[in-house]
Design a protein around this nucleic acid. Structure first.
Lengths: 168, 168
DNA sequence: GGTTTTGTTCATTTTTGTTTGAACAAACTT
DNA sequence: AAGTTTGTTCAAACAAAAATGAACAAAACC
């Protein structure tokens, strides 16, 4: 049940600590801020939905971080909010679908850059072809870029598969 | 062939610029510093191996960054160094295997954390089981952690597949 | 309508990560 | 062996990202 300490912070249970650590490490793999992991980690092992102020005192993070973090997690679909009878505050609950977080990584971080990269590679090919500056080894470079193009295409095609695999 | 400008920096060809941009964006997907992408991008479209000082003037980055960057790229196996006849300087060439960079991400960033996560999840299970604090909904939490454990295992098993797919 | 509670926004601060360059070391040159 | 070239290391400067908290808005309560 967690023991009370100091005036402002409430001690976390051992389980909560582990969960938080787990998810902090998890979200950091995907370049998300620590606070996201803390919030999700706490909610993940809370059977009841929690209101913001309670999350704040448990984690000891600022209202600002919390608000932003929850809003991102809601956008991802990793957290849902619920209004409880006779309580003005919104209550937040973790959605089990952890893959929402990984999807965010694939879809927002990887996909757009791969897309952008694709057109850039075409351009590179064009540049090689139109530069007839008697380049002896322009062929070598051409081969390289062609190989990259192939690899790039392959990488692009594997991502949807990974995403599908991780969901469900 | 690139036109000369100012005294210290040599203008990059259009192709070099594109390649550099491409790889900067690429390495940033995996949380590597920009300089790594610049170096690799330049080498990728250089038919001949380049010495450090030449890379430095082309990119306009510091000797320190360069040395460190090249050393990381060499560790990854993404760049090889060669000594040329009658030249004291080492010359660096990009290895075509771009996947070395992604492997680094999977093997150094993801794998260890997944490993660490695995034991943390077992611990969480233990903590749930040994806490007999008459918790009505401890079952619910147990279910959640079990689901996570399953998902985690799945994620762990897919990584070697991805790595294999990306190599060659 | 005024007051309180709840939640968001955003300029500032803090933290984290990257780059720089000067000091150093090692290897080659004469 | 003294001087020169080449490359590394690491403390300090700088830049980028995240967290803070005070000011603000919106809704609920009386």
């Amino acid at each position: 049940m967690g023991t009370t300490t100091k005036e402002s912070a409430i001690e976390l249970t051992r389980l909560e600590e582990e969960s938080i650590d787990y998810f902090v490490s998890f979200v950091q793999m995907f370049g998300l801020p620590k606070s996201i992991g803390q919030i999700y980690g706490l909610l993940f092992v809370s059977p009841e939905a929690l209101p913001m102020d309670s999350i704040q005192t448990r984690l000891g993070i600022s209202k600002g971080s919390l608000s932003q973090g929850l809003s991102l997690l809601k956008d991802l679909g990793a957290v849902t909010s619920h209004s409880l009878e006779g309580d003005r505050r919104e209550h937040y609950r973790a959605d089990l679908q952890v893959s929402r977080i990984t999807n965010h990584f694939f879809e927002n971080r990887l996909e757009p850059r791969l897309q952008n990269g694709k057109s850039r590679l075409s351009l590179m090919m064009d540049l090689i072809d139109e530069s007839l500056d008697g380049f002896d080894d322009s062929a070598e470079v051409r081969t390289r870029v062609a190989a990259l193009q192939k690899w790039h295409k392959r990488g692009g095609s594997i991502i949807p598969m990974i995403v599908k695999w991780l969901k469900r």
